[in-house]
Design a binder for these strands. Structure first.
Lengths: 355, 355
DNA sequence: ATGAAAGCGCTAACAC
DNA sequence: GTGTTAGCGCTTTCAT
C-alpha cells in the first residue's frame, strides 16, 4: 500500500553499524545499560535520518503492552445530544497523550451484548479501560475487575462485593440534586416538577431523582409522581415532557431538569405556553453546559466537570497500569450549584461568568 | 496483571486435537480451504469454551493489518463547545464497528507539530486515517496521501497538485452561506452582520465568509468590514462579538452567525440589549444543532449532517483500505436552509420539527 | 484435508 | 559495552 519500503530496526542497525539490540537499547533508553556516547549518537542519527518508528504490533507482541487506553461509551447515541461526553473526551485525550497513551474509542450501542470491550481486553488491544455510562446489568466488567485488569469507572455505581476493588471518578449526584431542589424550596416553591431519564438508564440520573425526592421529603412536601416525567437526554424530550406537565393545572411553579439540554427544551415549552421564567416557572438544570449562561434566561444549574473527570480518569488509569495505583479509590468531585437567573434568585443583569 | 492464563491458538488446537494451522483456517474462514465439518465443529467448540480471542498484536504483526481506523481531530479544544464533532464521532463509530474496525481517536492540540498522527501510520497502528479540521499548513498529510496511504478528509480543502488523489466528504459551505445570506436579503435586510471564526482557522469557515460576501455583492450591497466579527466556536465568543456589533449605530438588522452556538450567544446579547428577534434583528445560524428548534426563538439555520459525514467517511475509508475505492472521490452533501422563526420569515407557532 | 515450519519486527536473557 | 539468540502468537506457504 505504501510506496516506501518499511524501515525496521535492522535498517537502523545497519546504517549505524551496530546490532539491533543496541538500537533497541538506545532508543528505549533502557536503564542500567551504559552505551558509549558515540555509538548512541550514531544510532539516534540513523534512526532520525531513516524516519524510523518502531512497529507497534511487534513491540506489543513481545512486551505485552500496547500503550493504548480503551474508552468505552455505552449508550453511544447520547453522543448526538449530550454535551458531557465530548468534554470528557477532551480531558481524557489530553492526559492520555501527555502520558504517552493512545485512545481507542469504543462506542457501544447495545450494552446487553457486552462482548464489545471484552474483545479489546482479551485480544490485548489495550492496557486499561475507562468505562462511561455502564449499565447496572453489565456482567463482563465485574469479572474484568476481579481479575485485576486496570479499569476506571466514570460515574460510580455500587457493586456489591466489589466496592474495595473499584476505581472511579464521580460527582455526588444525590447531594447535588438535593442542593438544587432545596434551592428551589428555599425560594418558596412547593410544586416542583422533575424531568429525568428513562428509569432503566444511568445510575447517575437515578441519583438526581433520589436527591430530588429526599429534598422534598425533608421539607415536608408530599411527593407527587405526576410531577416526575421521563425523557431521554435531548431537548426534544424536555420539550415534550414539559408540555405534558403544563397540560393540567395547577402548574408546577418550578422545574428541576435532569440535564441542561432537557432544561432548554422545557424552557421552550414554557415560553410557548406564554409563561415567564422565572416569574411563572423557575427552572434549574444539571451539567452547566457551556451554553447555559446564554440561555433565555441564563440557566441556574449544577456544575459537574466533565473535562476534569476525563483528566482524572486518564490519570488514574495510567497510574493503575504502571503500578502506581491512585491514593484514593474513588474521587468524588464537587458539583456546586451555579445560580443564574432562571431560578428567580437573581434579578436580570449581566450574563454570569462562563466557565 | 491478569490472573487468568492467556489463551492462545495453541490451547485451542490442543483441546480440539488439531494443529494451530487448522485453528487459524477454521476461525478465519479462509476461502478455498475445505475442512471436514466435524473438525470444524470441534475447533469452534474448543475456541468457544476457552473464550479464545486472537492476540491482536500477533495477528497484525504477520498480516500487516490492524483493523483500526485513525480519526484525527485537530483543534481538539473544540470538542468542548462544538456540537459537530460528537455527532460525527457517532456516525463514524457506527459504521466502523459495523465493518469490523476499531477507532483510534487522536486529538491534536498543536497541528503545527504534526508528528502526532504520523506516528500512528509509521508505527503501523492504523490501516487508514480520517482527518477532521486539518490545517492548511499541515505538511505531513500530503506526503501520506501521495504515498498512497488511505486517507479521507472530512471537510475538503483544496490542495494544489493533489486534487486527483484526495478522498473527502464535505458540504458546500459557500453555496450554503449564499443561501442563508440571500434568504436574509430577500426578507428585506441590507445591514447584515456576520460572526465567524478567527481567520487562521478552518477552511470551512472561510467558505461561509466567502458565501456571505458573494451574496451581498450579488445583491449590490456594499460590504462593510465593520460588520464582520471574529470569534471562536463558543457561545461566549458569539455573545462578545454581538455586543461589539451593538455598540455603534446603526445596528445591523440581521445576523448570519458562523455556527449555531455563536448564534445562541449572539441572541443572548441581543435580548440583553432589549432588542427583539426577529423584529429588530433577524438571526440565521449554521449547523442545525439538535437544540436549534428549542432556542428562543427557534433558530433558522443551515443543516449540515455531521452524523452522515461520519458514516460516509468511515465507509469511504474502509473501502479504500479494502481495495474498493469509492466511486466518487469527493462526496458533497446538501446543506439546506432550515427556516424557523429567528429569521422572521415565519410567524411564531408550534416548534418546528427537530431532525 | 491437515500438519510442519518459516517468519512478521521487536525485546531481553545470555554470551562474549 | 555490544552482539547472538530465542521467542512473543499468529498466518501462511509447502509438504504430506
Amino acid at each position: 500500500m505504501t510506496g516506501k519500503p518499511r524501515v525496521t530496526s535492522y535498517q537502523v542497525a545497519q546504517r549505524a553499524g551496530v546490532s539491533r539490540t543496541t538500537v533497541s537499547l538506545v532508543l528505549n533508553e533502557v536503564p542500567g545499560v551504559n552505551i558509549r556516547e558515540e555509538t548512541r549518537r550514531r544510532v539516534l542519527r540513523a534512526a532520525e535520518e531513516l524516519g524510523y518508528v518502531p512497529n507497534a504490533a511487534a513491540r506489543s507482541l513481545v512486551s505485552g503492552q500496547t500503550r493504548t487506553l480503551g474508552l468505552v461509551i455505552s449508550h453511544a447515541e447520547h453522543l448526538q445530544v449530550d454535551a458531557f461526553i465530548p468534554q470528557l473526551l477532551y480531558g481524557f485525550g489530553l492526559v492520555s497523550r501527555q502520558r504517552g497513551y493512545r485512545v481507542l474509542l469504543e462506542t457501544v450501542e447495545d450494552v446487553t451484548k457486552p462482548d464489545a470491550y471484552t474483545e479489546l481486553v482479551r485480544g490485548n488491544r489495550i492496557d486499561g479501560l475507562a468505562v462511561l455510562n455502564f449499565r447496572c446489568d453489565d456482567s463482563q466488567l465485574p469479572e474484568l475487575i476481579r481479575r485485576g485488569f486496570p479499569v476506571v469507572l466514570i460515574g460510580f455505581h455500587p457493586w456489591p462485593g466489589l466496592e474495595d476493588k473499584i476505581f472511579a471518578v464521580e460527582t455526588d449526584g444525590v447531594a447535588a440534586a438535593i442542593r438544587a431542589t432545596r434551592h428551589l424550596i428555599a425560594l418558596g416553591h412547593r410544586r416542583i416538577a422533575h424531568i429525568t431519564f428513562s428509569p432503566e438508564n444511568y445510575y447517575a440520573t437515578q441519583d438526581r431523582l433520589r436527591g430530588y425526592r429526599q429534598a422534598l421529603q425533608a421539607a415536608g412536601i408530599e411527593w407527587d409522581p405526576a410531577w416526575v416525567r421521563y425523557g431521554n437526554f435531548s431537548a426534544a424530550s424536555g420539550y415534550q415532557a414539559m408540555r405534558q406537565l403544563l397540560r393540567r393545572k395547577p402548574y408546577p411553579t418550578a422545574l428541576f431538569a435532569g440535564n441542561d439540554t432537557i432544561a432548554l427544551g422545557a424552557m421552550a415549552a414554557i415560553h410557548r405556553k406564554g409563561l415567564r421564567i422565572p416569574e411563572d416557572i423557575a427552572v434549574v438544570g444539571y451539567d452547566d453546559i457551556p451554553t447555559a449562561p446564554y440561555m433565555v434566561p441564563p440557566l441556574t444549574t449544577v456544575r459537574i466537570s466533565p473535562l476534569e473527570q476525563g483528566r482524572i480518569a486518564a490519570e488514574m488509569l495510567s497510574g493503575l497500569i504502571e503500578g502506581n495505583p491512585p491514593q484514593h479509590r474513588r474521587i468524588c468531585l464537587p458539583a456546586p450549584l451555579i445560580v443564574r437567573e432562571s431560578c428567580g434568585a437573581k434579578r436580570q443583569r449581566a450574563v454570569s461568568a462562563g466557565r
